[in-house]
Design a protein around this nucleic acid. Sequence first.
DNA 1: CCTACCGATCGGTAGG
DNA 2: CCTACCGATCGGTAGG
Lengths: 191, 191
Amino acid sequence: MVTTRNTREDVITAAGRLFASKGYHGTSMRDLGRELGLRGSSLYSHVTSKEDLLVAVVEQGAGHFEASAEAALGSSDTPIEQLRALIAGHVEVLLDRSDAAKTFLYEAESLDDDRRSLIIGARDRYEQVFRDVLAAGARDGTFSADLHPKMAAIFILSILNAVERWYTSDGPLDRNGLEQEIARFVEKSLV
Amino acid sequence: MVTTRNTREDVITAAGRLFASKGYHGTSMRDLGRELGLRGSSLYSHVTSKEDLLVAVVEQGAGHFEASAEAALGSSDTPIEQLRALIAGHVEVLLDRSDAAKTFLYEAESLDDDRRSLIIGARDRYEQVFRDVLAAGARDGTFSADLHPKMAAIFILSILNAVERWYTSDGPLDRNGLEQEIARFVEKSLV
DNA sequence: CCTACCGATCGGTAGG
DNA sequence: CCTACCGATCGGTAGG
């Protein structure tokens, strides 16, 4: 059996796992050490503080959603297809990067004020992408002209974020089916 | 100035306030004592443990949602009006009993397995009310016949629960407007 | 990455 | 409802 020293990356990954499942306050540095097979105090050769770890995980999560939004916008010129790509991309971040995504969505409030503001800014920019696509669709006739883009964006993101709370890939609904159920429900509301 | 001893009710109310804003793990018994103007250790004349407090708050939250669902079902015989009453009732529980409601929704996972199962059961029964109303509406032609009641119930509750994360009564949207925006978005999806 | 430790804080008890 | 305290655990540091 080969044993290798942990890297900073390993520490951040494990921290994401624990923060996502037990919360930031519910995770101790000793818990995290145990997860990696070392003492809590040894973690301080990789990070300067526990909050430093939270920052790293939350920024990863923000980055994944940002990248997904950018890819979705570039994938098509039509609002309806951009919206579908946004929905599919969000689901994929939530399922494939679930630790970072959940920590980004739910544990950022444990950051100090300055850093929390940065993360809220990232969330706002991401929501703005949805709003812009919806507004473009309302202008060009894809969606109803009396659509409220701001409300619709909030409602769509509400549905998307909640996926993490109920969906399991063990059930009858596969990932593609999930994305289609959401897109179907949402699109009916928009026309 | 009149100073009165605190009752168990006072303690539970204050606990709900702190659990909702800082989380169960982020709240210490000394924090809670400070909130009530007494020492942390004095709380143990009112409760037997910190988890006992969480149980009490979470059960209050469950009770409010249960009562709202029952009232909504009794308010009308038509699925569309029952659904509107469910939506309005959920929003009102979230806004008027926000501490208990948020603790019920987000902090139940800190309970031990047995008690958590009970709460998940309560959530499932509540969701089932939405599902039944949706299915009845699909049967009688109010909603589309190919509606998926289970999916729709999840999506509607996703929108409703998220209200707590973005809505503020300081903004341009009053409570009635909020309820109508949600009902409008949701109903378009169901027909 | 370890041992040994720091002061602070945790949930909770004893005894009034 | 208080003081005084318990053992356990917290984030983190010193020094190797």
